[in-house]
Amino acid sequence: MWIYEKKLQFPIRIKNPNPKMATLIISQYGGPDGELAASLRYLSQRYIMPIPEGKGLLTDIGTEELAHFEMVGTMVYQLMKGASDEEIKASGAGPYFTDHGRGVYPTSAAGNPFTAAYIQSKGDPIADLNEDLAAEQKARSTYEWLLRMADDPDVIEPLKFLRQREVVHYQRFGELLMKVQDYVESKKYF
């Protein structure tokens, strides 16, 4: 069971529309290293975790990623909302607008729709946690590329918060991997 909380994890109040930026940030909504992929990955991998720490951490980070999914969707929504058709046309956001108007759709910045092929659930906790470490690093670099293309503090602050969360998740997954490795080793010899 999940319970929705009617608030963002980090406040987002974007005053100036920027349709082009919306169609770049959308990649963290439905792109290869985005928040939807992250959430789906951890919430699917948790079933076969052999120790309670693993079941807990994957459930909890998978849940936090859903809050990030909502933050990214909010940024896209607010960046598109006040933009006129003319501004959208001039900004180069026309291809996205053609397919989705001012709506929020899980796609990559390059236009590939979301697919479960972005994630793996291998039935092997060591393999899965190694994937998770790489996934957090890839999400971190995506936020860094986005930060290089952003110039509005209303956009930069939430992106920096999201980038920092990837660093923390990476740290926690690294600690968990060592625990799971110890557990698997102990099973081999006793």
Binding site: K7, E53, G56, E64, V168, R172, L176
Partner: peptide
């Protein structure tokens, strides 16, 4: 009030993830 909630909840989330390990 929302900001106060966010700050306290952030502390709880951080400690929660740490305590999982």
């Amino acid at each position: 009030l929302l900001d106060e909630i966010r700050i306290l909840e952030f502390m709880a989330v951080e400690l929660n993830l740490y305590l999982d390990n």
